[in-house]
């Protein structure tokens, strides 16, 4: 999988977020480097939700953090509403912060255990001196109400008095307090029960509509991503494999890795016989020394000598569908549905 190339990029004047050749590497000692994200390009239009999927360690969270400038990109460009934000530091970066916010995976660790919920949600308003104390309280009440919590009981309590799902609601309220344009959700429901997951996903949809949000939704659960995304990007070992609208991606996965991921989704129906999986063999290679050429070739059923030497570039495989593979699959996914 290779996924270099900027073919999936669309009109830069429309895109709210445009990520080009994003590269994040971490020093790993003795001169080695972890290639967490390598030459990833994508864009997000205003009001869109981009789903970012891949297995653990594929660099999807690092991509989100690199956009937020929490993990500093070692290369490439991130443009928010046309403005380059890679390389901004200090006060200049701080001034950009309110425009993009992030929701983290662990809802409990995201909230300071020693502060009251009212103070936690008011914190962004305090930092930016928005309104007086009275206006802030009103805003906090509005936000808590919007995320489905009762402001009267919630404001005076501390995070440990809430469940994981409720804590995630508080995190969402805090992230929305500054009315950001871009919201990056880093596995926001992975730590929650399935029933609570649905509530939080619905809430995010509601918030998206209510506050006109553009979202990047990072997850490893394809079923979750399919339902919230306008476009889905599949990552493997720091590279993009495939990017397409969810229906197209799930119906006609062109990349062997995407097919393997989709075939791994269990069918919650006891009358359906488990199908033969198009699984992949082996383990994900070390990001310290990623394979040459296509990074997926060591586990790919369709690999040839070309994949060893030449990295496939993103090419169009349909309407809004881009795939980075020398030997894309053309027949539809062999799954009952």
């Amino acid at each position: 999988m290779a996924g270099s190339g900027t073919a999936p990029l669309r009109d830069p004047d429309v895109a709210l977020l445009r990520v080009e050749h994003l590269t994040v590497e971490f020093p790993a000692g003795r001169g080695r480097r972890v290639h967490a994200v390598s030459d990833v390009s994508f864009d997000v239009y205003p009001g869109e939700t981009l789903g970012l999927v891949g297995e653990s360690g594929c660099g999807k969270s690092t991509t989100g953090r690199a956009i937020m400038q929490i993990s500093r990109p070692t290369g490439g460009s991130v443009k928010l509403a046309g403005r380059e934000i890679v390389g901004t530091t200090g006060e200049a970066l701080r001034q950009i912060r309110p425009e993009m916010q992030m929701i983290f995976q662990d809802p409990i660790s995201s909230l300071n255990p020693r502060r009251r919920v009212g103070d936690i949600v008011a914190q962004p308003l305090e930092i930016w001196h928005r309104g007086d104390a009275e206006a802030r309280t009103a805003k906090v009440r509005e936000l808590l109400g919007a995320v489905g919590l009762d402001p009267d009981t919630a404001m005076g309590r501390r995070p440990h008095q809430f469940s994981g799902g409720q804590c995630q609601r508080i995190s969402i309220a805090r992230a929305l307090a500054l009315e950001p344009t871009l919201l990056i959700c880093d596995e926001p429901v992975s730590a929650l029960d399935v029933s609570v997951q649905a509530q939080i996903l619905n809430l995010l949809e509601d918030m998206k509509a209510r506050y006109g949000l553009t979202m990047i939704f990072i997850a490893h659960d394809l079923a979750v991503v399919k339902n919230v995304s306008d476009r889905v990007a599949v990552m493997y070992l720091g590279k993009l494999c495939e990017i397409a609208p969810p229906d197209e991606l799930y119906r006609n996965p062109a990349h062997p890795y995407t097919r393997a991921l989709l075939s791994a989704i269990p069918i919650p129906d006891p009358t359906v016989r488990p199908r033969r999986r198009e699984g992949v063999a082996g383990e994900i290679p070390s990001p310290l020394a990623p394979p040459s050429g296509c990074r997926f070739r060591t586990r790919c059923p369709r690999t040839t000598s070309r994949c060893e030497t030449e990295e496939p570039a993103m090419t169009a495989a349909g309407d809004g569908h881009f795939v980075a593979c020398h030997h894309p699959v053309v027949e539809p996914a062999p799954v009952a549905g």
Binding site: L201, N202, N227, L262, S263, I267, P268, P332, V335, G337
Partner: peptide, 11 residues
């Protein structure tokens, strides 16, 4: 084409 069945969380 047939779509993989999956729990429809936002149904």
């Amino acid at each position: 084409m047939p779509v993989p069945q999956q729990p429809d969380l936002t149904a």
